[in-house]
Amino acid sequence: MTAAPSARRSTRWGEPQRVRERELLASFAAMPADDPRRKAVRDELVTMHLPLVQHCARRYRDRGESLDDLVQVGTIGLIKAVDRFDTGRGLEFSTFATPTILGEIKRHFRDRAWAIKVPRRLQELQSAMTQATDRLTRELGRAPTVRELAAAMGVDENDVLDAIEARHAYATDSLDSSRDGDDDRPAALGDSLGVDDPALEAVEYRESLRPLLAALPDRERRIVLLRFFHNKSQSQIAEDLGISQMHVSRLLARALTKLRAGMTDATTH
């Protein structure tokens, strides 16, 4: 039995959806780049093709990165495909978009995952931990404990701790070397949290904090504000942003390191 090509997914649509897709693509192509209506059209096109992204992401689910994260990077590929699609070439949009989405997911693995050499045992542990965390979080309605993870994975609690440490070690090295993609996120995440957030007023020396926050990539800044000034838990933020809690944790640690370095500079100069 052969797997259905991913492009075929959209052909399961009824006629009304195919008509709508063509309408949207045609009007998107006709709009000048600064047309304010472009965003809504693009959002609708992205939303209607999200199942295609999910399908592509699932092909890579067992490689140690969470499905949420893969869907996230795949969506960036989808947005690029919407922006680059040329209606005049007679291609189905899904046929055009699939390689772009897969390309973005593969780039994610190339750039971020295992960019530094992680021992095979830890790679396998992390892969198992990612899957067990996803599953247990769904089952329990909260993040699992190390004990619960160890039981679910059939390993020692120290093995889970090793995997947590290794995750941070590899994340600091490999995520720093690849920054693009972060600001290239789906617009659907909203842009409400900026440096003018009223919650920042409570911090006395916000004047030095503000430029440092402004220098962070959008998503890191949003996570810092939600976690420290809006008292959302890492799990709540993960849900809001559609990424895994482990990813939130990595981004939070990374952002804090940058902020601290910036503030130490400010006080010693």
Binding site: T133, R142, A143, P144, T145, V146, R147, L149, E157, V160, L161, I164, E165, S233, Q234, S235, Q245, M246, S249, L252, A253, L256
Partner: peptide, 20 residues
């Protein structure tokens, strides 16, 4: 901090908070 959080049976997100 991570090891002691695990021993205290904290959920993973709280463990990460304690670590930070």
């Amino acid at each position: 901090a991570a090891a002691m959080s695990a021993r205290a049976d904290l959920p993973l997100d709280q463990l990460e908070d304690v670590r930070l």
